[in-house]
Design a protein around this nucleic acid. Structure first.
Length: 287
DNA sequence: AGATCGCCCTGCTTGC
DNA sequence: TGCAAGCAGGGCGATC
């Protein structure tokens, strides 16, 4: 499932292949794909028609395409299974094609939103003074944002009465970290997912942030290659499927540091993967 | 008001 | 072999 690095790969692909083009027609093939656009599919389509796409932007796992000639932006979230594809117009429709956007030029390609599980979607929103779609004003900056405030994040951890993995998945504290990268970063930092955040020292927070950035940048480096090719460019798959993971999905496999079998624990209706030796649980907390 | 939990959705895997 | 349950899980709204 796409997390920050995969979404950034998609953003770059859209910047290369979609920014600057003018929309002529929008087809909404599944209402759930525009459920965040409260006025509905026909309104979504009508309000895009004739507008030029600006430079794509991203925060966390959200990306958006500002309309160059209006104060609005197309907001996109890929959810669990969403893809934004730039396809030849004559390519057959994908099985789970939800939205099609056509352009007025001679490039011969169109933008397609394809999403099997329909957790993702597109919607149109007004933007705040800094260009952010108004409905994601509560989403914190992500750790790859140059303006991310490490000290504010640390103070946020200290203030919260929660545990570290919950905090990492709280998109209003830090955005772009999902279940996979949370487990990867905690493994690298040798931290158990149930560690209380209130006792974090500044060096511990700094080290954890470093691991989060390292693992994201490594994934981005893999996914961000071969940007000349349209195919690799816009679906982001090359980075996603070849990603080397140290923790996520490695139940019963040896820890790459100490060889101890990795464990999986049910957690918040999903799973946490960790090394029982490298990542000791806090005292008086069931592991 | 901050923290937690249920729900949305489909296809693949697992187990009886 | 067939069916049902389990699992994947981000984000939002309801609830405590």
């Amino acid at each position: 499932m796409p997390e920050l690095p995969e979404v950034e790969v998609v953003r770059r692909g859209l910047e290369r292949w979609v920014s600057g083009r003018v929309v002529t027609e929008v087809e909404v093939l599944h209402p759930r794909a525009v459920r965040r656009h409260l006025a509905g599919g026909p309104d979504f389509a009508a309000r895009l028609k004739g507008h030029r796409i600006g430079v794509t932007r991203r925060r966390g796992k959200y990306l958006w395409l500002p309309l160059a000639d209006s104060p609005n932006a197309i907001l996109a979230h890929l959810g669990m299974s969403g893809q934004l594809l730039v396809q030849p117009e004559e390519a057959p429709d994908e099985k789970h094609l939800r939205i099609r956007v056509r352009f007025d030029d001679d490039q011969g390609t169109e933008l397609r939103f394809v999403d099997q599980r329909t957790f993702g979607g597109l919607s149109l929103h007004g933007t705040t003074a800094d260009g952010l779609p108004d409905v994601i004003a509560h989403i914190a900056r992500d750790p790859l944002d140059p303006a991310f405030d490490d000290e504010a994040f640390h103070q946020g951890l200290r203030r919260s009465r929660t545990t570290i993995k919950r905090a990492l998945l709280n998109q209003s504290l830090i955005s772009g970290v999902g279940n996979i990268y949370a487990d990867e970063a905690l493994w690298r930092a040798k931290l158990h997912y149930e560690r209380p955040t209130a006792t974090f020292t500044r060096p511990r927070t700094t080290e954890l942030l470093g691991h989060i950035r390292d693992v994201m940048n490594a994934a981005l480096a893999v996914g961000g290659t071969s940007f000349d090719s349209l195919y690799v460019n816009v679906n982001g798959e090359s980075g996603y499927f070849e990603r080397a993971l140290d923790a996520y999905g490695r139940e019963d496999e040896p820890c790459r540091r100490c060889g101890t079998p990795m464990r999986r624990r049910p957690w918040m209706n999903r799973s946490s993967y960790f090394c029982p030796r490298c990542q000791r649980p806090p005292r008086a907390t069931p592991s």
